[in-house]
Design a protein around this nucleic acid. Structure first.
Lengths: 224, 224
DNA sequence: GCCGGCATTTTTGCATGCAAAATGCAAAAA
DNA sequence: TTTTTGCATTTTGCATGCAAAAATGCCGGC
């Protein structure tokens, strides 16, 4: 009997889940642009599946806010208007603040060290001017903090909002000054977390997001 | 041409949406108990629809956390364990606090009057000892505050969590003392809102939810 | 009498079919 | 020329069909 392979049961994920992830990625990365129609036949061909799982996936993404359902007229990739983006970031702020508080209280030292490691790598990317890699680590840090909260409901909601906001980020490549500021803010955030300063961490996370909002909004206005 | 009627276009809701609402209601009200299997054939017959819209609806409710999908083995009504409930209420606390803050800042005086009217009706139900009606108005008040925030993303997330939490409430009928306390808390909440005391309102809303959590948890433990 | 394996039945997952709604287009009317 | 209207095509919404997986029950063996 082959050793390792046979031991972990083959759990084929349901097709519709696969499709959801695939579509979400296409949308978040901008391959499917805002406003683009989701033609069922076309996507079926592209993904090599039938309409049933695709339709299930589309409806799911609609609840996440990534696509908009037009009764009897299919679905389009949801537009990111500035107002909605502001609303989302506001909510993310509240969620991150809560996550920070919980993480401060409950996260293990090891966990915080992991986050610090991510932070260091992020700094390296900043120094090197590698924006894409920087974003990766940036994302990872924020997600880690949220996960360190130990509240899975919170983590799920955050991830959902994050997917929406990331789309905007791809459009809004912000300025060097904002980048430097963001790095400084991260420095302070990590510091507050490591020293378990709850109130400071909450404030810093909220400010960080508020600043991001401002940056992304100006970016979007330029694009529009 | 008939005057008013013809002007507003008939927009038939898609069947799957109807089914989602219907199922959610069945679950929230407890007609479909925790852990109950959702047999497709049975539900199709009961609702008089085919499997496709039903399946779409079930997948949607899964993202809301009301049902759990077991690959190749269908779906069951998600169990409400105390830990998860605590997580949800924690998140609701953060969301309500944000909602309160925004409502304080932006809600019109008329809006606040509406909430006060609901509050008065709620008091009447409390005085009369009509728990069911009291809950109705209680819900309406919290939802109104959330909507008065003007942040629709926030409102949607709150509604989703609320549906989950309400299920627990149906099981956990709490004590008279807790009821009286809750009413007092509401009195203070309304006062803070009416006088635009942001910090106080945030604190009150969070405390109110924390107290609710405690009450519901003891209720659940009794039931289990 | 109880457990395990095999066959049957049920149920799910996905594909496809069909009718209704929407869209596009072209011809007719203004 | 512009607008309108009818027709053909496309696309969606829902129903149903089919195969694979899981559940159920039956029977023989221990």
């Amino acid at each position: 009997m082959p050793a390792v392979q046979a031991m972990q049961p083959i759990n084929r994920r349901p097709l519709h889940e696969e499709v959801v992830d695939r579509l979400r990625d296409l949308i978040v990365r901008g391959d499917l642009a805002s406003g683009a129609r989701l033609n069922e036949r076309l996507l079926c061909e592209r993904l090599g599946i039938s309409r049933t799982p695709l339709r299930e996936a589309i409806k799911l993404l609609a609840t996440e806010g990534l696509v908009e359902l037009l009764p009897n007229r299919g679905a389009v990739v949801a537009a990111i208007d500035a107002a909605r983006l502001a609303e989302m970031l506001q909510v993310m702020g509240a969620l991150e603040a809560l996550a920070g508080e919980l993480a401060c209280r409950h996260a293990s030292a090891a966990r915080i060290e992991e986050i610090r490691a991510l932070h260091k790598k992020m700094l390296a990317m900043h120094a090197r001017g590698d924006l894409a890699a920087y974003f990766q680590y940036n994302q990872a840090i924020h997600l880690s903090i949220v996960e360190a909260s130990g509240n899975s409901v919170l983590a799920n909601m955050y991830r959902q909002l994050n997917a929406n906001v990331r789309r905007a980020r791809y459009m809004a490549n912000f300025s060097k000054e904002r980048w430097d500021d963001a790095v400084r803010e991260h420095e302070e955030i990590l510091d507050a977390l490591a020293n378990r300063k709850v109130a400071a961490l909450k404030r810093l996370l909220q400010e960080h997001l508020a600043n991001k909002l401002a940056a992304v909004l100006t970016g979007i206005e330029k694009a529009a």
